[in-house]
Write a protein that binds this DNA or RNA. Structure first.
Lengths: 97, 97
DNA sequence: TTGGGATATCGGGATTTTCCGATATAACTT
DNA sequence: AAGTTATATCGGAAAATCCCGATATCCCAA
């Protein structure tokens, strides 16, 4: 758990927005673009207004920080939050940092 | 409470180290360089190994993010943690982000 | 087996961050 | 008033980040 890497991943308005969308995917994305593994990249990109390459990079940053997980299924990659990571981060800030 | 500003402030190893020292100042600094208002800049600088200007800047960044508070006393500025900010951040991550 | 769709990676210009030395300011001392 | 000490601010070189367009890869369908 690299603290600096996590905080850097969170230091961006667009990435915070993505995390917020992924908190309640059914509220923000149509059912056809999500499943139990998460939400596909394309629909996140479309909602964000940023380019495909940027969103792909941002998802990679969030994933490397451990905040989200990826599942490949056919030509799609589905991303969802890793809630354990957020719980751990909350505890870390509460008692360690 | 600007989330991005807070996470940026936390996205640096030296600043995290300072926050850690300020969590238990009596453990990390001699009594003569601290009081109830916190720890003075010079002793933080000395311990960090960074230059005076850098530490002053870093303390300003942490202060602008609301994570620490400054108290001027004579020619010294004492800095201490704002624990309410950390508690609020922990809750924010636990339930909002 | 080839074409198209979804995602990842590459290369880069613009901006921000990192950390420094030099300088300014403010308060204390003599 | 002049010198000293503590801290803040300024200017800048190097590195990192932001976000893009172009290209590569991977998978499916015809």
């Amino acid at each position: 758990m690299d603290q600096v890497e996590i905080f850097k991943a969170l230091s961006n308005k667009s990435r915070l927005e993505i995390l917020n969308w992924l908190k309640n995917p059914e509220l923000h994305f149509s059912a056809e673009h999500q499943n139990s593994s998460g939400v596909c990249v394309g629909i996140i990109q479309e909602k964000s207004g940023l380019t495909q390459s940027t969103i792909s990079e941002y998802l990679t940053i969030l994933k490397r920080a451990g905040l989200i997980e990826a599942t490949r299924s056919g030509q799609w990659t589905y991303y969802k939050r890793n809630e354990e990571a957020f719980a751990a981060l909350s505890k870390l800030i509460e008692s360690e940092i």
